[in-house]
Structures are given as C-alpha cells and as structure tokens.
Amino acid sequence: MTTDINPAIGSMLKTARDWLTHEHSLFQSLNLEPILIGKGKATFAVDLPDEFTGADGDIHGGLMTIIMDSIFGLTVFTALEEMKPIATINLRLDYIANAEARARAVCAAECITINDEVAYVSGDLKLEGNGQLLATGSGAFMVGTRGPAKGSRL
C-alpha cells in the first residue's frame, strides 16, 4: 500500500495515521480509512457525521474543507523525500453537491508537483456508494516551514 514512498516517510505516516485515528477526536469521529497511499497520492474514505451538518440538514461546507485540507496535507507528505513540516498557504474549493449526513465519502488527492518549496495539490470528494461528486478543490502548501520537523499536517 505504501509503495514508492520514501521508507522513512512511509513509517512516519503510518505512525501518525495510527495515532490520529485512535487518539485524535476529530479524525476519530471521521472514521478515516486509507484506500490508497502512494508517492504524491492519497485516497481516504471518511464518515460525514451528523454533528457537521448545516441549517439545511445536509453536511456543511466546513466539513468538506476540514476533510480536503487534511487529505491534501497528507498527500504532500507522501511526496517528500525527507520529513519536513508543511503549512497550508491557501485552499480553493467548489461545493458541487449537497451530501446527506451519515453518508460515507471518498477524498482522493494528488500532489501535482513541488517546486521552489511550494507543493501544489488538487483533489475531490465523492460519495462512496454512487460516486456522486460533492466537491473539488486545489491548494498550495509551504514545505519546510519553521517548526518541529516531525510534524504531520494530518
């Protein structure tokens, strides 16, 4: 599952993922499940829980932002040759369709390139069952920001 990723990054990602899925309440409630992790690519299944709904009863755009920022950041880590801290510079998201609460979704992201210490990522969020597109987005991340070098954005 972690083919092509730098081994040091791969083991660190696994440790971070285990910790987050068991200890971090946000990611625990999203029930993150890795579907594919490769170099510069990550796909995760996530829950869309009731507590993240908006006034219309559907999932709030804010949860889509939380999911995509998380998976985009993780995707940057898979593309690195050595572990460095990263920080989101900016994100741009289109909310394409409403999602009902308690559905399960799949977020797929790709790190297009890292150039001049900036990582460029794009991805989408789809319903797990019928593949309905919920959101698309792109983001830029600064690689090698000041801070602990062992950091994981996710």
């Binding site: 971090h24 939380i66 920022d69 801070g147 602990p148 950091g151 994981s152 996710l154």
Partner: peptide, 17 residues
C-alpha cells in the same frame, strides 16, 4: 480543533469552517 498535535496550531479546515 487542533490539526497538528506537534505544532499545536488550529486545523486549517476548522478555521475555514
């Protein structure tokens, strides 16, 4: 609301929400 437990910053997506 913490994104990265090592740097103790708010999660960017939480700020967006």
């Amino acid at each position: 609301h913490i994104g990265n437990p090592l740097i103790r910053a708010l999660h960017g997506g939480v700020i967006g929400a």
